[in-house]
Amino acid sequence: MTTTSITNVRDLADTVRAAFEDGTPLRITTCGTWPESLRSVRSGATTLDCSAITGIVEYIPGDLTLTARAGTTLAELEEATARHGQWCPLSPWGTDAGSFGATMATATRGPLTTALGAPRDLALGIECVDGTGAVIRGGGRVVKNVAGFDLTRLMVGSWGTLAILTEISVRLRARPAVDETWSVPLDGDGVTERLHVLRQGVYAPLACEMFHGAAARAVGLSADAALVRLGGNAGFVAAARSALRTASTNAAPHDPAVWTRAREVHAAPVLQTLAGAIDRPLDRRVKAQFDPRHILNPGLFAESA
């Protein structure tokens, strides 16, 4: 299996166009943090390593928007935005060693998704190269935009089977003034239900994830527990804290660093259970329009004729 490293969009477009003409299957990677064994591309494909298509293109803190190339790592985005008290709240299952592009291409969710939005909700615009080698832009860099049909939503979550993302613009959030993590033992007596009610109410946490058995141990919890993250201004968090204590008198403050491990532990089960298929006539027509020779990540989604 051969690997080609790509450093810019123009080279990528030329490479894909050549592959389109030859019918060469391509496996798209950036940082390679997804376990290959769980979602693999049909063997024999040429690997296109896009990790060098990297860098923040534009970041205007006052606008709370950021544009970066696909190979940029999440850690780089974290570092750049943290300096301004902001964050790109993707925080997906997996690690920050993963790339921005892969996170958006796979629409990977994470513990903050319910509160702050899935990748499709955060994406403002994209640049990508489709399966014919065409360089395409959709959306833009402003926070509200309905100009043209929505290629952004189409490409986010398409797992590189319609086009290869090269640049993405996203909306950012201000980091909450107070941000604290609690662990809540899942010791029966309706605590799970009360946490569910808390999540639906006005003091909904930023994140609430439950860990049982081996997963709890892997995260470093001594028993089955929920990790709860409360965020907001001081007044809000004080009220949310007492709501949490009402839900469980055993709630205790926890080291926020636990989320790094929690995201890693949860990544494999997410990938294992995630089914994807190009099985309806409409899906197949979309595929035919953007990757007519089925050269992009073939076999990654189950394809039926």
Partner: peptide
């Protein structure tokens, strides 16, 4: 799109 299913976001 849902948490448990990948596929094209044709709703979007």
């Amino acid at each position: 799109p849902r948490a448990d299913r990948a596929g094209y976001d044709l709703m979007g």
